[in-house]
């Protein structure tokens, strides 16, 4: 991970609701590392490290929300776990899908691929979210 280790340890990402310690700021910072980032999965580290290079402005509220009723009852395949190029989706201990929306690249792949339409997906509010500098 790169320059902003303080955000990698705040634990905000196991919850999709964000964390007040990082919320609502317009300060530019890298997103927190994935909650699965325990140092044992070098490939998972790789995508987190890549996200660490990007500039994100974290909003106080998530721009992706999961309808867990639909997700649990209508979806077998859980393609969100594999299609996201930022690897933001994971299963929590209760077996529910959670999304670490803070590191979202805003491509919309999950929205397009989620068949049962369990996602409420909008762009982050103006000026928030990823800010590409050289893409």
């Amino acid at each position: 991970m790169s320059e902003t280790p303080e955000t990698t340890e705040d634990g905000a990402v196991a919850e999709t609701t964000g964390d007040s310690s990082v919320a609502g700021t317009t300060e530019e910072r890298s997103p927190p590392a994935s909650a699965t980032d325990d140092g044992t999965a070098p490939k998972a580290m790789a995508v987190d490290a890549k996200l660490g290079l990007d500039v994100f402005k974290l909003d106080s509220e998530p721009h992706i929300e999961i309808d867990h009723d639909v997700c649990r009852t209508k979806c077998v395949k859980k393609v969100c776990l594999t299609v996201c190029p930022a690897d933001l989706y994971e299963l929590n201990d209760e077996g529910d899908i959670v999304v670490n929306w803070e590191g979202c690249l805003e491509c919309g792949t999950c929205l397009l691929c989620c068949e049962p339409k369990a996602l409420s997906w909008k762009y982050p509010r103006g000026e928030y979210g990823v800010q590409y500098r050289m893409s």
């Binding site: 190029p85 690249l105 805003e106 919309g108 050289m134």
Partner: peptide
């Protein structure tokens, strides 16, 4: 050296 990672539909 990788300096940015980006994605788009």
């Amino acid at each position: 050296e990788t300096v940015e990672y980006s994605a788009h539909a």
